[in-house]
């Protein structure tokens, strides 16, 4: 009963706005602590790699950013589906608010990968399956952002964006399995495989710390964006006007 009441309240834009506003500083604080711990273990404690030297430390950003690029896309498309089927406004808000954060992580995954690739592979870029499909992911995110800004009516825009996001989901398994399906220059999975991860604990700890930090980062930044979107959508309501005039 309390549980369903909670969801009912969260679905109301006013309560969502308020609760999100309270959560953001805590999530941001926790994220900052995890980032600092991740940087400490990643840059100072973890030893240099026996083959890659210190260049592998780029992986502490590259790998979590790449994970986030996929994770956020799935959340975005999932929220898009919920918005399409049940017409839940908040789901639409989450869909569109996720796109810029997802695009940012995809961009980071591509750029840091490229910067690591130059000294390690001897090239900034190759058109192998993993890199190409990740680049397509960036274009999908940018497409979602462009489509949303091209349609005036916010609910109509949300529906169009959800459909585009859902069609693009096909790219997610392609990215994930690209290193197995095709002969890529990009290496296969190190951590997410069923037998023991082939990575030493001293390197796994900062990787996981950064991964959790990035997850928290996504949650609080998407909440910040969602609050803006809620204000825009509710700009003609009494509570938003009162809120605006308080300031």
């Amino acid at each position: 009963m309390i549980f369903s009441n909670f969801f009912h309240k969260m679905a109301s834009p006013k309560h969502f706005y308020r609760i999100a506003g309270r959560l953001i500083p805590w999530l941001a604080g926790a994220c900052l602590l995890l980032v600092l711990a991740g940087l400490y273990y990643g840059l100072l404690v973890a030893p240099p790699d026996y083959q890659q030297g210190d260049s592998y430390r780029i992986m502490f950003i590259h790998v979590p950013a790449a994970w986030m690029s996929l994770f956020i896309y799935v959340v975005m498309a999932g929220a898009g589906a919920i918005g399409l089927i049940w017409r839940i406004k908040l789901a639409e808000v989450i869909t569109i608010s996720s796109a810029p954060v997802g695009a940012s992580f995809t961009f980071l995954a591509l750029v840091t990968g490229s910067i690591w690739g130059k000294p390690m592979w001897g090239t900034w870029w190759v058109w192998d399956a993993r890199l190409t499909s990740e680049l397509i992911l960036l274009f999908l995110y940018l497409g979602v952002i462009a489509l949303h800004s091209a349609i005036e009516d916010r609910r109509m825009a949300a529906r169009a964006v959800a459909i585009l996001a859902l069609v693009g989901v096909i790219n997610i398994p392609i990215i994930h399995y690209s290193v197995e399906w095709w002969n890529t220059l990009h290496q296969g999975p190190t951590v997410t495989k069923f037998d023991k991860p082939s990575i030493h604990l001293s390197m796994l700890i900062p990787l996981l710390l950064m991964a959790v930090a990035f997850k928290l980062y996504y949650v609080f930044v998407v909440l910040m964006r969602a609050r803006c979107e809620v204000l825009e959508r509710e700009r003609n309501t009494v509570w938003v006007r009162e809120l605006a005039e308080e300031k």
Binding site: D54, S55, S104, V111, T112, K118
Partner: peptide, 19 residues
């Protein structure tokens, strides 16, 4: 950074900026 200063710090710098 064992000779990889440019690559490592550029990566971390861009990440910080974007975030």
């Amino acid at each position: 950074m064992g000779g990889y200063a440019f690559y490592v710090w550029t990566s971390y710098g861009i990440a910080l900026l974007v975030l």
